[in-house]
Design a protein around this nucleic acid. Structure first.
Lengths: 194, 194
DNA sequence: TGACAAACTATCCATATGGATAGAAATAGC
DNA sequence: GCTATTTCTATCCATATGGATAGTTTGTCA
């Protein structure tokens, strides 16, 4: 039987997510990947398929975890939970140092999206996740009679998605903007209640 | 008197804006800058101060033009003009090929913002411009008695800023999301009217 | 017409990059 | 204890990179 890797796949992948999320694809070289994740350049190539393949796997895992822990549960949440999602956010374990960099996926859309054919399918998945989560909550609230009659469900969903995305950019921007936007989004959601 | 450059400063700078906006800082090499802007690597170094300095000058010029043509005029606009700013956007001359890449500044925040000390001052300027533009319009509408009494001006301003930023990300993302968000934002703004 | 200054061209340079290779090390199973 | 397999280490490689240099070209002015 074979030699074990220095670090487990899971630990290495988590480290890779944080590295690429905080620094972007281009600012991270293969020597830095070795230093920060424990994956040697040999293993990077032979086991993971190279830098680009590791990046995509990290991004896919990020999307998996983001959906599982942050978005999918929202689809069945009530309005107050949705509002608190904005003004009292939870941070997935293991990513505490990265949330100030915004969203790994949003950063990838704006940094690489125009030139990299591997990004658009993931972008589509991300927006699907956002619309499913916020749309689910909003349609659920409507069905429960919790929404004011005058609100347009598609508009509300789009505004919730807009708020979520812009909060991520504001996180990457630094400063107070993310808090302003979180507060405003939570207020907006609470204003939809019957 | 000396030899003239192959292209004018203004044309070169416009070309540099479009190049960096569409491709990002790292995806553009100095040979590509030569090919796309007419600035030789010699001139890039001696006149502009190098690749990074050209990038920052391009970004600053982009912020100047964006403020002048798209944002500053909003500060004295009425609500309907603000709504149309979203659902019937105008494209600054010379940038038609780049708007599908979103916003040069937003792309820079997410791609470089975490590692590059030259970006945060420009990020702060960008958000200041956004808040001044949307805040000005909204406060002006309130002063004119055009807003419903119940709306919170700071919340409205923050939501308008959120919408503007997320539309830019959606442009970079491609697909129908930008149009959804534009429509929703315009509806939201119209819903604030008395 | 010559001088001067600015920009261009062709070439060079040091460094960094992603990935490849060969030999060594580590591990489990037989 | 040996074998097979996987991973590691040290080194190498071809290419790309941002920038530098030297000689040439170009345009204006005196």
């Amino acid at each position: 039987m074979a030699r074990h890797k220095k670090v487990s796949d899971q630990d290495a992948l988590l480290a890779a997510i944080n590295l690429f999320w905080q620094n972007g694809y281009h600012n991270v070289g293969t020597r830095e990947i070795e230093a920060q994740t424990g994956i040697t350049r040999f293993t990077l190539q032979t086991t993971y398929g190279g830098k680009k393949a590791l990046f995509l796997k990290a991004l896919d895992t990020y999307l998996d975890l983001t959906d599982r822990h942050l978005l999918a549960p929202l689809a069945t949440a009530d309005l107050e939970t949705l509002a608190r999602w904005f003004d009292s956010p939870t941070i997935p374990q293991g990513f505490e140092g990265s949330v100030q960099s915004g969203c790994f996926m949003v950063n990838t859309i704006t940094a690489l999206g125009g030139q990299d054919a591997d990004v658009p399918p993931r972008t589509a998945r991300y927006y699907d996740m956002l619309y499913a989560a916020f749309g689910g909550a909003i349609h659920g609230a409507a069905k429960a009679g919790d929404l004011r009659m005058v609100v347009d469900l598609h508009q509300c969903t789009a505004l919730a998605v807009a708020s979520a995305v812009s909060v991520q950019v504001a996180m990457a921007a630094g400063g107070p903007h993310a808090d302003y936007l979180r507060t405003a989004a939570a207020q907006m959601i609470r204003s939809w209640a019957a």
